[in-house]
């Protein structure tokens, strides 16, 4: 029984799906697995990966943040603007990350302290943040950013073919996975998401846990901004506005329930890889960007529909952390 347990996890299904897409795509279009294509995939999805894993804690606590792409744009614009005004680029990056934390905190304060629906609040701040980004740059774009930032976003590790941003993303994902799956804060996240009332009565500081989740989303959006601006060597208010849907899609596809309480960071990373490979394969097959969009939407529906269907028959579960949480609460 326990030997089969790992096979019943949501992530196993993702790996299987990824294997199928990779094998089928690799056979029909060998270029899919060429080094150039793999590099491009890694570079162009680095920001998406950070957005997705960053918003995962918010969704795990049964909230939502649809302002992540706007926070990316605003942080990227501010960073570039500070640099053109003469600030050192590393200091500008630090300021941008701090701004991300503040923006996330603003979302969190509205949602948690004023007890407003997260969707409505972040719908509002989404417009507000993008608007502020526009006010800073007024429709212009900043290009020709310093070499150090461009190398960070689009260069390879010296002497190898491995993009620096890939390593950065994996390191940040590992750090976030550690926080979420191996610390008491992480366990509180799942407890709050599974049953807010019960978490409250168990003595979990629900307000602080939810606030911090929003701050994490803000910080990761800012980190995504650094890689995005470095990769494309462009900062303007409209950047990444089309990344919101793929990011949320990746989180849900990665096994995080939109009702909160379940999900894993490795699952979300796998989902980003799956979406990236699928998109590249469809592109090589000559399908337009819109056909790819349809495919992404369809995959989302099929994955969740199939998950629900199989679940009904065999008990295959999306990653469950509720059991772990209740054990924790029971022993504590």
């Amino acid at each position: 029984m326990s030997r089969w347990r790992s096979l019943r996890r949501w992530e196993s299904g993702l790996i299987a799906l990824l294997a199928v897409v990779t094998v089928v795509g690799g056979i029909t279009h060998p270029a899919l697995l060429g080094i150039y294509n793999l590099q491009t995939m890694a570079l162009n999805n680095a920001d998406l990966a950070l957005l997705a894993i960053g918003v995962a804690p918010v969704i795990i606590t049964a909230d939502i943040d649809i302002s992540i792409a706007s926070m990316l744009a605003l942080c990227g614009v501010l960073m570039a603007k500070l640099w053109t005004d003469g600030m050192d680029i590393w200091l500008a990056i630090a300021v941008a990350i701090a701004l991300g934390a503040v923006l996330g905190l603003i979302n969190g304060l509205f949602v948690v302290l004023l007890e407003l629906p997260a969707l409505a609040v972040t719908l509002g701040t989404m417009g507000a943040y993008t608007g502020v980004a526009f006010l800073i740059l007024g429709g212009q774009a900043i290009i020709n950013l310093p070499q150090s930032l461009v190398t960070l976003g689009s260069g390879n590790i010296g002497g190898t073919q491995i993009p620096i941003s890939l390593v950065v993303v994996l390191a940040l994902a590992a750090a976030l996975a550690f926080v979420i799956h191996l610390t008491s804060y992480g366990r509180s996240l799942f407890a709050v998401g599974a049953n807010r009332q019960a978490a409250l009565f168990s003595g979990i500081p629900v307000v602080r846990v939810r606030l911090l989740a929003f701050v994490i989303a803000g910080v990761f959006s800012a980190l995504a901004a650094v890689l995005y601006v470095g990769n494309y060597d462009t900062a303007q208010a409209t950047i990444a506005s089309d990344q919101l849907l793929p990011a949320i899609t990746a989180v849900i596809l990665g096994g995080v329930s939109a009702y909160g309480g379940t999900g894993t960071i490795p699952g979300v990373v796998l989902a980003v890889v799956l979406l990236a490979v699928l998109q590249a394969a469809l592109g090589l097959a000559g399908l337009s960007g819109q056909a790819q969009t349809i495919a992404v939407g369809a995959i989302l529906i099929i994955a969740i529909g199939a998950g629900a269907g199989i679940n009904a028959f065999t008990g295959l579960r999306r990653p469950r952390r509720r059991a772990a949480v209740s054990e924790q609460l029971g022993s504590g």
Partner: peptide, 9 residues
């Protein structure tokens, strides 16, 4: 856009 967003909140 900023004002519209603020109005919603």
């Amino acid at each position: 856009q900023t004002l519209q967003g603020a109005a919603i909140v």
